[in-house]
Design a protein around this nucleic acid. Structure first.
Lengths: 164, 164
DNA sequence: CTCCTTTATCTTGATATCAAGATAAATACT
DNA sequence: AGTATTTATCTTGATATCAAGATAAAGGAG
């Protein structure tokens, strides 16, 4: 009997006409997701980062040398709006973790590149982040996690099937 | 090969020292969750609501007659801060969906109650919301969804085991 | 070459959230 | 009763986000 069960029990009393099975699935998933995000945030914070800034730095890092992408590419990978990305890059630039490099061939845009300080930081932070992800997924056995992956991938494909 | 696979492939090239298996699990889950939230928002919007306002109204509705709770109870159920709840109640009150009722026994606080308009609206919205949840979970068979529920409940219990 | 459209990014204004502090009333302690 | 503590809620200030519009440069049509 967790919090979600209590919510479902209330609905069954108040609105017995509704079949709230899916609400249990989505509700528990939502709570789990919330806990996971909180735990991930703790590690980001150890490196002075947030989910938002970590995402930008990690996207640049895993793009490979020279660790630089246009704002448009960053927007595409991180799925935020242009206004949000401007703000994120501004903050990271002020912190000395990225720099805007003018593109001589197209003066509309430029590249956002990791500084040496930014590269060192994100490499350390990613190592800790991955270790944290291992810790957080350890509640399931390897077999359970694999079964979970299959189900999530199937479900996800209902939304992204045409994008592969 | 979805977007998450591409991200993992990048990491395996750039940081072959990292075991990014859990990142796949969490990454796909995160994307799935994002899609689900977007789809849920669409139905909230049909009733002029957001996730935030729906949550408050639904919490009051499922509490049963007389559909009224203190801000403290609402904060507990919805897991937001007091400042956030003040803001939410302000909006809902301005929209005529809830009203603040003074508690004669404790003048520090009061009760937030559904207006008749609020009760009618949330009853309609919940019906549509539950139908939407059925639609969104239909990507999995009943057996798959049940297996998924078991795994999520187990994982969730790692975070909430002492709260049941 | 000039004008129009598209692309790339930034700016503005509105909203939601949180943390921390303020306010006010109830309760407990002496 | 009088003071201190706790509880309940609101206020303030900072941050992040988005949608829509502004700005500037590139590319295409004639």
């Amino acid at each position: 009997m967790d919090q979600v069960d209590r919510i479902l029990a209330q609905w069954r009393t108040e609105r017995p006409d509704l079949d709230v099975g899916p609400m249990g699935t989505l509700g528990r998933m939502s709570r789990l997701f919330r806990h996971l995000r909180e735990e991930l945030d703790k590690v980001y914070l150890e490196y002075g980062l947030s989910q938002a800034s970590f995402d930008v730095l990690a996207t640049l890092r895993r793009a490979g040398e020279p660790y630089a992408l246009s704002p448009s590419m960053l927007i595409e990978w991180t799925m935020v709006t242009s206004g949000t990305m401007t703000n994120r890059v501004d903050r990271l630039e002020a912190a000395g973790l990225v720099e805007r490099r003018r593109n001589p061939d197209d003066r509309r845009g430029f590249l956002v590149g990791l500084t040496e300080q930014g590269r060192v930081l994100i490499d350390e932070a990613v190592t800790a982040h991955v270790a944290n992800q291992h810790r957080l997924t350890a509640a399931l056995t390897a077999e359970e996690r694999q079964a979970f992956d299959v189900l999530v991938a199937k479900w996800l494909s209902a939304f992204e099937e045409n994008e592969g």
